[in-house]
Nucleic acid binder design. Structure first.
Lengths: 226, 226
DNA sequence: TAGATTGTTAATCGATTAACAATC
DNA sequence: TAGATTGTTAATCGATTAACAATC
């Protein structure tokens, strides 16, 4: 990726960038499953539960353009999004913790679609070290610096219990990690120049509960109104 | 939860609601680990990488108030957030798919903190049916309607491969599910009155890659400027 | 009391929606 | 051509930030 492209990435509104990832997933699906060539903003909007205006506005930040009555060429959009997301280059990541979650992540096939690859998985449990997770052997934590150097690892996924998460984070920071993908529910305390992305799953469930409560409230209101 | 409380939930800005979940996690941590009684907006802000003004603004939507110089009483905030999130009532959820991800979810201990409980886990693989995942036995898909009725299940987590996700979603919709917590990367096509929350994990990784690219770009710029 | 911190109101910023011209 | 759809500009809406008074 050259400098110009790097700069270009910066210009998107944050909200648009979030949706671009959704468009990427949906378009991939349409291309593979339905062998579609073109898609209308209206169709995309319906699948993603947003408005067609939103879709067109988002696409207006891209170089790709649609044709009235025909829509957007899926392959063109996908090529541009792939380039934007750096799907071609491979970012090596490591996983700390070989529990169910770590294993699930290590076995995840979708990483290559976004230009990522799991370089190694680590655990401190002697019972797990040496066992296979897909094509990877579980390594002891002491091997982390070696693997990080060898594969130029910048991103680490923390999949250890909440009680060990901060400790692991401290260790990774000491090894010079650039970004932490945090799957524990622990809010980590790390230096500000280290990127942290919290993926604590229960947060999503709270969102669903909230939406269900909203619907219940609306339903009650309607009954009340009679 | 009575009607008044239900209505109250609705009044928060969406962005504030998202952050309330983070506050909940952080405050729980402070209360348990550090036995702290009070916390300043400044401290919360630093841990969550937002501004103290943002924290105070968010808290202004709550009934709890802070004291100048002393800060906010952690237990008071937690009580209010627990009430808000309905942590006391239990929402039964089911998990479809007993692969690594399904198992990770079924074993997750944090559900009770947000008023949720895994009622059952299902798979269609005869090899998996009957095996234990924590305290739950893996059940065949045909048992889904029975379990849904018995435990008044409204939320289902889809943890099956992408290729099976839509099919499973269709089935769940047929059984009257109210919300789908989608862990596959498939964009699901379901009726609009069914809530869908996509938890596709690679999206988070794209966000990290994007932030790293931004930092690289900034670094290049600085070099260039010399 | 003086200084630090909360809480609220006003100003700014950013994102979405509406309106509509351009175009296939 | 007429009608449908894109793409852009302007208007609205919502969220964040700034300013500052209130208060411990």
């Amino acid at each position: 990726m050259n400098l110009e492209e790097r700069k270009e990435i910066l210009k998107f509104p944050k909200a648009t960038f979030e949706r671009l990832k959704l468009y990427h997933a949906l378009l991939t699906q349409l291309a593979l499953e339905e062998k579609r060539e073109y898609v209308l903003s209206e169709e995309i909007a319906e699948m993603l539960r947003i408005t067609p205006e939103q879709v067109r506005k988002d696409f207006s930040y891209l170089r790709s353009t649609g044709k009235p009555k025909l829509g957007y060429k899926i392959s063109e959009l996908l090529d541009e999004l792939d380039e934007l997301f750096g799907t071609k280059e491979t970012e090596n990541i490591i996983i700390i913790g070989a529990g169910h979650l770590g294993k699930a992540l290590a076995n995840y096939k979708g990483f290559k679609n976004i230009g990522a690859r799991v370089a190694a998985i680590f655990d401190n449990d002697p019972q797990k070290i040496g066992t296979m997770v897909g094509e990877l052997m579980v390594l002891p934590l002491k091997d982390i610096p070696r693997v990080m150097r060898r594969f130029r690892v910048r991103i680490a996924a923390i999949c250890v219990p909440e009680s060990a998460a901060q400790e692991v984070a401290d260790m990774l920071v000491g090894y010079g990690i650039k970004a932490i993908w945090n799957f524990s529910s622990r809010i980590l305390d790390v230096p500000n120049d280290v990127i942290v992305r919290n993926e604590d799953i229960t947060r999503g469930l709270l969102g669903i509960k909230h939406m269900l409560a909203q619907k219940d409230a609306e339903a009650s209101k309607e009954v009340e109104a009679r």
